[in-house]
């Protein structure tokens, strides 16, 4: 498994980091880190899990769905921010 790191400081937001591995154009490993706030806190692993097996084009919908389904409130980055960072893992 080849894990890549990507980091971005969101303007007017927080630091967002990911460790990602992509195999056959699908995410096989993903961890999200940073100094952001996310409520409820135990939903971050659910967000990560929801993206495993997803292709580049499926990520944004999956992010939006899990945020809605789990009623996740994020301060410090947006769904667009994390989607953009994840796309780096597909390059």
């Amino acid at each position: 498994m080849q894990i890549k790191d990507f980091t971005v400081k969101i303007i007017n937001g927080k630091l967002l980091k990911i460790k990602i591995s992509v195999k056959n154009e699908k995410i096989e490993y993903l961890q999200i880190f940073g100094d952001f706030f996310l409520y409820p806190e135990d939903s971050l692993p659910k967000l990560e899990k929801a993206l495993i097996g997803k292709s580049k084009d499926e990520c944004f919908i999956a992010i939006q769905k899990i945020i809605k389904d789990e009623n996740i409130n994020i301060i410090g980055f947006s769904p667009e921010d994390i989607n953009k960072l994840i796309h780096g893992g597909f390059k």
Binding site: K17, Q31, L38, E41
Partner: peptide, 30 residues
């Protein structure tokens, strides 16, 4: 912070050598 990577954020060896405890908070942030 709750969502930070311990190894990325903290010089663990320096903390051990200087009797500095490390704890993960239940809260987010830095």
């Amino acid at each position: 912070g709750r969502f930070q990577n311990l190894y990325d954020e903290v010089n663990i060896n320096y903390c051990k050598e200087n009797n500095i405890d490390i704890v993960r908070r239940i809260t987010g942030g830095g």
